[in-house]
Design a protein around this nucleic acid. Structure first.
Length: 516
RNA sequence: GCGGGAAUAGCUCAGUUGGCAGAGCAUCAGCUUCCCAAGCUGAGGGUCGCGGGUUCGAAUCCCGUUUCCCGCUCCA
């Protein structure tokens, strides 16, 4: 099947079987926002737990926090988010290229200045030593007219930038007949402000309110709490702080289902290390994180590292772990060596020391940071697309049959088992109900007695239930039931009394964690 | 954001020249009692994405808009 078709089918499947719905669908939806349904939320919770346990349970020196989504606005000045993402952008309709409107105007001014310089150079060559530049500038008609043009544009431009007047910026471009360097045309769109951060107001009265942002990443909540955790938890470098939470980015283009959403959930761990050791730890976490992915059993060939050539201003090494999605290899996790950039910035902006006293070295320093940052929604999309299979089955009479099955790892599956009476009489439903009543304290169970047994198996396959317990007539005689396995479709007879232990062993997250 | 395509039942889709809103699957209630879907009977489910226009009459033609998909662009 073409990968593109597979992706479409996956999206339909997610909706049809209660995994993912478009947000506010009855109002035509909201662009790039999705809701998790009854099974989606279970799968997502299980993925989150797998990550959290692998960090906080398995590492004595990693602890978790849950910081608020709102943070003091200065946080985002310190982190660089306020300045870095506030550009007025304009598109040329012919070349389809996007430019910063302010840059276009500044370049235009520079061009005029070059013309002035040319005039001056020409005159200097003409008059030699007797040339008086200041006098030339103040008397030459051509230079004067160019200069007044520069002054005029500059005045308009700085006023527009100050007032954040986007229409005026566009008008300056139009009035000065600035063309696209590629197409050479003046077919411009409106100027738009692209700020990656969502903002809102905190405080009930309009004049007392301050502008606050919805965090565009969870990392800063960890950085600002670095000393709180270190001191209250008596942590010693190296140590880590883990956090799972929502982040918000006003993406220009948000697409590909759950892959790029405006509201999304990150699972981040910031690991604080001694300066100079960061690249060793970077390698350590690269390997560690890849192991976490591979333990899910979706095949080594579907993962790869992608090292960043162009590093962000805060990093001295960075890579992504990419998974082969139906639409190609794409990032699911980033591992970055963030240096001491963030803590240093917070120290500057807050005026508070963000230093750690190292008793071994008997000195204070700002630790370096290795970040592992994984998108929970991306991980969800990764797992469900890896799990989705359409299979052709040969029946006993030789005819072919199709089934859709989600081969989710048992410990991540939303529903762990379904208990099914073979037929709806002879007391079989009652026995099945009793089994569910007993096991519901341990597992997410379902009971189903509608339609033929084969159809019920297929329903469970479609939502990825790994085990189906079937109560049949033999159960009446010897208190045994069959376990039907989702992937092999094979069955095994076991005593009812042993069910809890058998299932617990199979669906435990322990087996996954032990591989790490 | 630009360009292209799409939107009809929960899902997949049909709908003729503009003339009664359809099918399969799914769901629900029965029947059947079966170990791997598609046996029988019946039922529910729709402002044809939304808004406007043309028309005696619009799912169908026109305009706008929203959402989704593909390519480009963007993604510290």
């Amino acid at each position: 099947m073409a990968l593109e078709d597979l992706f479409k089918k996956l999206v339909s499947h997610c909706k049809e079987y209660g995994y993912v719905f478009p947000s506010s669908e009855i109002y035509d939806g909201l662009s790039a926002v999705y809701d998790y349904g009854q099974y989606g939320v279970e799968l997502k919770n299980n993925i989150r737990k797998y990550w959290w346990d692998s960090m906080v349970l398995l590492n004595r020196n990693i602890v978790g926090i849950d910081a608020a989504i709102f943070m003091h606005p200065t946080t985002w000045k310190a982190s660089g988010h306020v300045d870095a993402f506030n550009d007025p952008l304009i598109d040329n309709r012919d070349s389809k290229k996007r430019y910063r409107a302010d840059t276009l105007i500044e370049e235009h001014i520079e061009k005029i200045e070059e013309k002035v310089q040319k005039e001056i150079d020409k005159a200097r060559a003409k008059f030699g030593d007797a040339f008086d530049e200041a006098k030339f500038r103040s008397t030459n008609q051509r230079v004067l007219s160019l200069q007044s043009k520069i002054d005029e544009i500059h005045a308009r431009y700085s006023r527009a930038m100050k007032e954040n007047n986007l229409a005026e910026l566009r008008q300056i471009i139009i009035d000065n007949e600035i063309v696209c360097p590629i197409s050479g045309t003046r077919n411009w769109t409106e100027v738009r402000q692209f700020n990656l951060m969502f903002s809102t107001e905190m405080g009930s009265t309009a004049d007392g309110a301050i502008k606050v942002y919805l965090r565009p990443e969870t990392a800063q909540g960890i950085f600002v709490n670095f000393l709180n955790v270190q001191k209250s938890g008596r942590m010693k470098v190296p140590f880590g702080i883990a956090q799972v939470g929502k982040a918000f980015r006003n993406e220009i283009v948000a697409r590909q289902f759950l892959f790029r959403m405006r509201e999304f959930e990150q699972m981040e761990m910031q690991y604080f290390v001694t300066p100079g050791t960061e690249l060793e730890w970077y390698e350590y976490w690269k390997e560690k994180r890849m192991k976490w992915h591979l333990a899910l059993g979706f095949g080594k060939e579907n993962y790869r590292f992608h090292d960043h050539e162009k590093l962000a201003h805060y990093a001295n090494a960075a890579c992504d772990i990419e998974y082969k999605f139906p639409f190609g290899f794409k990032e699911v996790e980033g591992i970055h060596s963030r240096t001491d950039f963030d803590l240093k910035q917070h120290q500057i902006y807050s005026g508070k020391k963000m230093q750690y006293f190292d008793p071994d070295k008997n000195e204070s320093y700002i630790p370096y940071v290795i970040e592992t940052s994984i998108g929970l929604d991306r991980m969800f999309l990764h797992i469900i697309s890896a799990a989705y299979h359409e299979e052709e089955i040969e029946k006993e009479d030789g005819t072919k049959d199709m089934r859709v099955v989600l081969r989710l790892p048992s410990c991540l599956a939303p529903v762990k088992l379904a208990v099914l009476p073979l037929i709806r009489k002879d007391g079989l439903p009652e026995i099945a109900e009793k089994i569910v009543e007993d096991l519901k304290f341990d597992f997410n169970c379902q009971y189903d007695d509608k339609d033929s047994i084969g159809r019920r198996y297929r329903r469970q396959d479609a939502i990825g239930t790994p085990y189906c317990i079937t109560v049949d007539h033999q159960t009446l005689e010897d208190q045994t039931v069959t376990i039907r396995y989702r992937d092999s479709m094979e069955q095994e007879r076991v005593p009812v009394a042993g069910l809890r232990e058998i299932i617990a062993e199979k669906v435990s997250i322990r087996s996954l964690l032990k591989q790490l």
